[in-house]
Design a binder for these strands. Structure first.
Lengths: 195, 195
DNA sequence: ATTTTTGTACCAAACGGTCAGTTTGTTTAA
DNA sequence: TTAAACAAACTGACCGTTTGGTACAAAAAT
């Protein structure tokens, strides 16, 4: 942090502040002047650091992606592979509660808002989802894992479904503002991988 | 259809055409002039039928909601309660393939785009999700249903998770444009309810 | 006859983006 | 040591376009 040049600090400040606005309001419902107001950075300076609104949005997504995978690997902790996966899901859901179910998941939001109309965004989102699935798969495929659905379902398929369930659960809790939606999804995920 | 008055026909035409645009582009990325171009209806006429853009969006959502629950009850067919649920999920996923994974689910899209910034929208969305869950619950709670997770998970919790998984699966397939994402989610859902 | 429906012209505000120019920080050279 | 030179960082006025929305007269339907 201390070794950051002035410009880098400004850029990072824009990135982090804009991320908070985007996750709450979405891309198309966020204007450049919203970002200017929130960051305190003047318009000219904003366009000095980022070529366009799209460019800024993409940079925010990339920045969040890197942070997420650090968070993911830290959250995958526990006594068994199954426990790791369950704890990770729980950690992700816990973040939603912290935000009072406002905003949800930046990647999920961007997926539904941008994936059909902007290939640059969907490319990043594809990486996020596939890497996330791969990471869960890596643990679920480990030796000694015995889950109740194992007979019918491969670890990769299960991993993918877990990601889908997490995103869907976040979506539902965002509408209902109800912690129970996340708890229920977590219970089923735990039942699936834990047996 | 034939008994519709002219104004009703116009209104319905606006509703259906706008729905197609909204599901593809989202609410905030769709302008009034986009709608005018697509429908052929002139601006003054549009604002005769709908008080505002929000009012139109809400009406589209309501219209889609009614249609969805007709579709849902028709899709819940099969020899056993489990088969009904599985067939229904399959029918929903099949619709996504028809659209080449473009647009996804109008309700899911609106949930992530509008639920935090517009209470009128989130009210409708809450009804959609809770009624959908209730409908699945009704079948899963029927006698003779024996699912592999039954020991740990109540029918209602399972129903909720299925809806979350469907929405998450649609989200992922929209990004990847890959049928496999839906197939995989369906396989896990089938494994969960079917044993 | 009068209510419902439609077409056209128009508006202020907000939009994303540009640009000429100022300030600040860092090298280089005398 | 200082001053010139260069680049990086920043400012705010300004641009053309698009936005959601209104006014109102003409036309059609009842």
């Amino acid at each position: 942090m201390a070794e950051m040049k002035k410009g880098e600090k400004t850029r990072d400040h824009i990135l982090k502040t804009t991320r908070a606005i985007l996750v709450a309001n979405g891309f198309h419902n966020t204007s450049i002047s919203d970002i200017i107001k929130a960051t305190g950075v003047k318009k000219g300076n904003l366009y000095y650091h980022f070529a366009s609104k799209e460019d800024l949005g993409l940079a925010v997504l990339q920045d969040a992606k890197e942070e997420f995978f650090k968070f993911l690997s830290q959250s995958l902790q526990g006594d068994s592979p199954c426990a790791k996966v369950i704890n990770s899901c729980q950690a992700i859901f816990a973040e939603q509660g912290k935000n009072n179910f406002v905003g949800g998941c930046l990647f999920g939001n961007a997926a539904l808002e941008m994936s059909d109309c902007n290939p640059h965004f969907s490319e990043v989102l594809q990486e996020v989802f596939s890497s996330w699935v791969a990471e869960l798969d890596r643990h679920l495929a480990a030796d000694g894992v015995d889950c109740s659905l194992r007979g019918n379902v491969s670890p990769r398929v299960l991993a993918k479904t877990i990601v889908a369930t997490i995103e869907g659960g976040i979506m539902m809790s965002r509408v209902s503002k109800d912690q129970a939606d996340l708890d229920d999804c977590l219970a089923v995920i735990a039942a699936m991988v834990g047996g």
